[in-house]
Design a protein around this nucleic acid. Structure first.
Lengths: 208, 208
DNA sequence: GATAATAGTGCTCATTTGTTCAAAGATTGC
DNA sequence: GCAATCTTTGAACAAATGAGCACTATTATC
């Protein structure tokens, strides 16, 4: 496989970044706009080069149909990996706002390892506090969170009355769902105004 | 979130299947063709329902721009990853021989996520037993182990008197090292003949 | 029995989007 | 120096694609 140029690598990186961020591929004009090109043909040239060199594959004439073939330096579609943005920390203690100013890091795991599926907006949060200690989630752990509908017993990142916390979701048959800490020193949390589930914890990663 | 109908679930499943197989989203007409509809509007109806019920999200007017909100994940690739062999399970309980007949699986993680170095003889083991529960390591967790010389307080995979276990390594100043469980129901382990450290636990990964 | 939601057909339309032709300056290898 | 490749501009086109309107049937729901 031929070497790609600096500019071509930038284009390729943007494709990666876009699909990771948005969940679908960019159009030619999305790429054009991002790089500030005055013509879509600037993009076409690079894409043709990347295709010729074997980094990218597309369905001719069809919209947003990329495939990363890669290998060189970086992995690709063959291995089902997911780059997960880390959005800051979440309180596993008393509810708090998520402490984050956007993305603060990235995790990369394959989807089986992290127990996630393709297509959604998975993210990760660093846990602060010890209210989930009974579930083996400690202060400083990283939780991989996936948006979805929780079932009774799931551990969730939840927005309760305007603040965010990591707790176990309990939904009694016919009752109102509430949040339960896995630590006797913390009370159950019953929502007074709202309970929004931001995501379900799918995996816990801890560095020792 | 409202319940979806049988037909709507079929549509959703097709979206999943398609993105998983092709790597990009289908167009409305792709869906139409697959189900044999005579009109694209049949698809539109179902998509509108799925959107209204919160299972799917799209960018209006733009091609192949789906997002699955409930149960799914996506592609991408990126940084320094390491494929770690999984060698079976290790007892975090009473010492036992490592139950393994060679490699039984693989983990793929990036080296920062798993706190490891490249090129080492890192491996992973599934934990059996609950003797490390106090350190937040549960039955069924995966531990990433890296060979090395342990320091006092490290969690290690150790061979003690011919059997293997996962424990905390304690080395008192001027004393003999021993192994300590993080669970009051288990005793300290003092080696009678040998204590070989097979590796230091660097990370714990748990799927929820 | 009325009303709403579901499940389609058929057709048309406007945009989105990929593609092509023509051209030119910059860089690199021979 | 010359050819090849890279990088970009600009304009125009045609196909791909999502979306709307009108209408029919069936199945729940109240």
């Amino acid at each position: 496989m031929k070497q790609m140029t600096q500019r071509q690598a930038e284009i390729l990186e943007y494709l990666r970044e876009f699909i990771g961020r948005e969940g679908f591929w960019p159009s030619i004009r999305d790429v054009q706009e991002h790089f500030g090109f005055r013509s879509t043909n600037a993009v076409m040239g690079h894409l043709r080069a990347l295709e010729r060199k074997g980094y990218v594959n597309r369905i001719p004439g069809q919209a947003r149909t990329f495939r990363l073939l890669s290998d060189d330096g970086l992995p690709a579609g063959a291995v089902e990996t997911e780059e997960i943005p880390v959005y800051g920390s979440i309180a596993a203690g008393y509810p708090d706002r998520i402490e984050s100013s956007g993305e603060v890091g990235r995790l990369l795991v394959d989807i089986h390892t992290a127990n996630i599926r393709r297509g959604g907006k998975t993210f990760a949060l660093r846990v602060t506090g010890d209210s989930m200690i009974g579930a083996g989630i400690q202060n400083g752990d990283m939780v991989v969170v996936h948006p979805g509908i929780p079932r009774d017993g799931d551990i969730v990142a939840a927005l309760i009355d305007g603040e965010t916390t990591l707790k176990r979701y309990v939904h009694p048959r016919g009752g109102t769902p509430y949040l339960k800490a896995e630590n006797p020193s913390y009370p159950e949390l019953y929502p007074t105004t709202e309970l929004v589930i931001q995501g379900i914890a799918r995996a816990v990663i801890r560095n020792l």
